[in-house]
Design a protein around this nucleic acid. Structure first.
Length: 894
RNA sequence: GGGCCGGUAGCUCAGGCGGGAGAGCGCUGCAUUGACAUUGCAGAGGUCGGAGGUUCGAUCCCUCUCCGGCCCACCA
């Protein structure tokens, strides 16, 4: 006997253990089956489960469970990302708490500490994913820094270098002075800040009192100015081109150059040029062959250099800014200061202001690699769902910049590059190969020094769809599971990850890494704000799991996963779906109490009862709806299809409508109804399993479906997770039964509605008089009489007798239903009710009339639409007339 | 500056092909001795942001506009 109510916490852990013990998640068990493959977006090793993960992994799990049941050889490849900067920062902070500085203990020891940390506390997110019910193939768990992935990274780097697609270059990078590393464009976050625009007067050489006024938001960079640019077409300054300014404070002679970059409309029209500290100025500098003077140390202090007055040496950048303004002011060269709001770049990890900084770094020629990646989306080889995200993808890919992949960190894949004394670089898979290459180059054995930098974490993530399957070896897994079917992700990592997997997948595997990119929304709080710790509006998915169960959370996330929008999550919604789980549990108890068990040899197509034929039809329709929804990644449609069917149709209608059948003395009907109920319920468990795996698996066993259904000849327990998805054919849909039962439901509703409206107590059993009963209605009345009587609380049916004066009259379909309760009916109220109905009906008639008297409509609308509207008008007129005559009778009785 | 998305019931949101406006929550009334109050039954509630256009017909397509959000670029 089932417990009185469903307690998720009692069963979820148990069920998950059963799945794992049974190896239910493992791929490669159905060798002949078609593959279905998803690689997980590898969470950071430092990560813990947030709502975004919960959504992302619920959707993947739904697809995997769906396809697993449909017989595919499913691989959901799990794994973690080493998360270079995040992890290094975390362990560094932990060591600092113990007064250990990473530079004191050195690189090797520090990395050892990180590995230790990973073993102890890394990857807690995987246990959290287990609680959510994720059916990843855990035996294949990978890590971007494990041996296999590391080998892939080396191979990829070396190959790209040999192909000229990775190169070393000295140019400006985004420099993070706190972390003291370069970062990519994507790791920079612009923030609006309130600052000032300082206007300075630069004296012009050869004139006593002539100045060129330049404006800047960064006065400290004056130390690195090597030119002033004006637009060659700017009448004000045209004549000055080729002349020189004397840089205030510094005293350096700097050239006035003509360059289109200077916009006459902006600022003063004259721009100071600091090639080593501004991306635009860098380009100007290259065009005019200007000197590039670096003024900053790696920690963003003023460098000690002969080019710079001693007084500024060692000053912190913002201190230097202030000093520079003060000093120029005291020279009388400060023209004015304006308030100015502008965006400043900040490091997304460190939170400090990023400096454009001139260094040697490794770059990937993203422009070249992007070409095939763009083309394959244009050709539809990879599809974005929703489609419009492809625009975002194109936008970025078509304007892609060289990707700086070197990082001045310790945690990560060290770059496989070795340098000779003269700086010649040898990029090889290992040190031996590098020495061999060096020997070839120098003609002798030489000392080599390995590049100290590591690669951007995303460099290894970009290889994920094939590095996890054994690449560069041509493994069976790789052959079978690449390309993968779908990547499921939020839009914020289309650039970071999806785009780069596309580039690398096409380059190394010569095939797109996934058929589909499914982009889901970001989860926000119930007011639409981003969840963040500082705002305190973070909802922890595990707390919801504790409180309502994993299935309720999963159902919630599924039901709000409409494509292409932000998702606002309110806990109340989870509560609602917890109630849904309870409902299913109770439906199971109903089945149990009424001995609804699976009957061997039961064939739903042989059902005699229309009600049973109807619920079978609805089951097929539900199955079809879910199939269609999941095939097009419309998760919310799948959720709503199953919700409406299970709660609205099966529980509220079928179980109620069928109850009376248990009381007839027709053993055959009872048996059929029991068998049908069990059959439907079993299919419900199958249909719901991808979304709500725990409760369905539990009930599958409790209801005894695990023993004799899939595996009749064995005593082995068969699990729902590995059972078959329903394959109910459309010819099981019986439209005649659907019409009849829907008519019966409408009949019941019509009577209940009137009783409620007329304040007739629900329990009052009423007699009804039916007039103008058509043959069809008579048949349906007869066949469903017991059910109708019970659910509409009808005492008895009387046909074709005149109803007494003052009876309530209901127009339903072709019928006029009279309820002769004149003594307890408030005639005025009934009059009002009928008048209201007439008004409503007349409104409808008016609308239809107008439409049907429109010549244009008759001439141009499709025939079926015209026919339909004509029929509606006819029906409405008939029913309106009937209500009117009913009203006449009431007035007569008053 | 370039691009994307949204505005539908009190709230949060669905509305594949243009043809009778939907759900959940909330609200109102009624119901409680056998699946379920984590419930059932019955209801109220909409100028589909605004204007114009296309069309026989527009929540849906087009243009403009107002409001909100996001992404990219922008450090004079």
């Amino acid at each position: 006997m089932l417990e009185k109510s469903y307690q998720p916490s009692d069963i979820e852990g148990k069920i998950y253990d059963i799945w794992e013990k049974d190896n239910a998640f493992a791929s490669g068990q159905k060798l002949d089956a078609d593959p279905y493959t998803i690689v997980i977006p590898p969470p950071n090793v430092t990560g813990s489960l947030h709502m975004g993960h919960a959504l992302n992994n619920t959707l993947q799990d739904i697809l995997i469970r769906f396809e697993r049941m449909r017989g595919k050889d499913t691989l959901w490849q799990p794994g973690m990302d080493h998360a270079g900067i995040a992890t290094q920062m975390l362990v560094e902070r932990q060591l600092e708490a113990k007064n250990i500085n990473r530079r004191d203990i050195g690189r090797e020891k520090f990395i050892e500490h990180i590995w230790q940390w990973k073993e102890q506390s890394g990857g807690i997110i995987f246990n959290q994913l287990r609680r959510l019910g994720a059916s990843c193939d855990w035996q294949r768990e990978r890590f971007t820094m494990d041996d296999g992935c590391s080998r892939a990274v080396l191979k990829a780097f070396v190959q790209l270098h040999k192909e000229g697609l990775i190169y070393r270059d000295k140019r400006l990078v985004n420099w993070d002075p706190k972390l003291q590393t370069a970062i990519s464009d994507l790791e920079v976050e612009p923030k609006e800040i309130k600052s000032h625009m300082w206007h300075f007067r630069y004296p012009i050489e050869g004139f006593e009192d002539k100045f060129l006024v330049v404006a800047t938001t960064r006065p400290e960079t004056i130390l690195g100015d090597t030119a002033v640019a004006v637009n060659p077409d700017d009448e004000r300054y045209k004549d000055l081109i080729g002349k020189y300014c004397i840089l205030p404070i510094v005293g350096r002679r700097i050239k006035i150059v003509g360059d289109e970059y200077a916009d006459p409309e902006q600022g003063t029209g004259a721009v100071k040029i600091t090639p080593a500290h501004d991306f635009n100025d860098f380009e100007v500098g290259k065009r005019h062959n200007l000197e590039m003077i670096n003024i900053l140390t790696k920690t963003a202090h003023i460098i000690e250099s002969d080019e710079i007055p001693k007084k500024y040496w060692g000053m912190e950048r913002f201190t230097a800014r202030k000093a520079m303004v003060d000093d120029i002011k005291s020279l009388g060269l400060l023209d004015k200061i304006e308030d100015h709001t502008h965006a400043q770049p900040y490091g997304d990890r460190s939170g400090v202001v990023i400096e454009p900084y001139l260094t040697d770094q490794w770059y990937v020629d993203a422009k070249t690699m992007a070409k095939p990646a763009i083309e394959s989306v244009e050709q539809g080889r990879t599809k974005f769902v929703p489609e419009n995200w492809s625009k975002t993808y194109y936008e970025w890919m078509r304007n892609i910049q060289p990707w700086c992949v070197s990082r001045q960190l310790w945690w990560g894949h060290q770059i496989p590059a070795w340098y000779g004394d003269d700086g010649t670089v040898f990029v090889e898979l290992n040190e031996n190969d590098a020495h061999a290459a060096a020997k070839l180059h120098y003609g002798k054995d030489v000392e080599l020094r390995r590049d100290q930098d590591v690669l951007d974490t995303w460099f290894s993530s970009a290889l994920w769809p094939f590095s996890t399957m054994g690449w560069p070896d041509n493994t069976n897994e790789l052959v079978k599971h690449y390309q993968t079917d779908v990547i499921v992700t939020a839009f914020d990592i289309i650039f970071f990850w999806v785009a780069r997997m596309m580039m690398d997948g096409l380059h190394f595997m010569d095939e797109v890494p996934f058929d589909t990119v499914y982009v889901h929304a970001l989860v926000r709080d119930e007011h639409g704000a981003k969840m963040s710790k500082s705002k305190g509006n973070v909802i922890n998915p595990l707390e919801l799991v504790d409180k309502y169960g994993a299935d309720a959370l999963r159902f919630t996330l599924t039901s709000i996963a409409a494509p292409g929008r932000d998702i606002k999550l309110a806990a109340s919604r989870v509560e609602g779906y917890r109630n849904f789980m309870t409902k299913i549990w109770n439906a199971a108890r109903f089945c149990e109490m009424n001995e609804c068990v699976i009957i061997d040899g039961y064939d739903p197509e042989n059902n005699q009862q229309q009600l049973n034929r109807w619920i079978v039809s609805e089951t097929v329709k539900c199955q079809n709806n879910i199939n269609t929804a999941l095939a097009s990644y419309r998760f919310n449609d799948a959720a709503s299809a199953v919700y409406k069917f299970v709660w609205g149709i099966f529980c509220d209608l079928y179980l109620e409508l069928s109850k009376p059948l248990f009381f007839v003395e027709d053993d055959k009907a009872v048996a059929e109804t029991r068998a049908t109920t069990a059959w439907v319920f079993q299919n419900i468990l199958r249909l719901m399993h991808p979304i709500t795996p725990y409760i369905t698996e539990e009930l599958w066993h409790q209801m005894g479906y695990s023993k004799d259904i899939d595996n009749k000849n064995s005593n082995d327990i068969s699990l729902l997770i590995t059972s078959d998805w329903p394959q109910l054919p459309d010819n099981m849909i019986d439209n005649a039964a659907i019409h009849e039962i829907e008519w019966a439901i409408g009949f019941i509703t019509a009577i209940r509605s009137v009783k409620s409206e007329m304040n007739i107590p629900v329990a009052t059993k009423i007699p009804v008089i039916l007039q103008e009963v058509s043959k069809k209605n008579k048949l349906w009345l007869d066949r469903n009489q017991i059910t109708l009587c019970r659910l509409a609380r009808i005492d008895n049916f009387n046909f074709d007798i005149a109803p007494p004066k003052g009876a309530i009259q209901i127009i339903y379909d072709d019928l006029t239903i009279a309820i002769p309760l004149a003594d307890i009916i408030d005639l005025a109220m009934e009059k009002y009710r009928l008048e209201k109905a007439i008004k409503k009906s007349e409104n409808t008639i008016f609308g239809l009339d107008k439409k049907l008297s429109n010549q244009g409509f008759l001439a141009k609308a499709p025939a079926d639409v015209i026919t339909e509207n004509k029929q509606r008008l006819l029906d409405e007129n008939t029913s309106c007339d009937k209500i009117k005559s009913a009203l006449a009778k009431i007035i007569d009785a008053m």
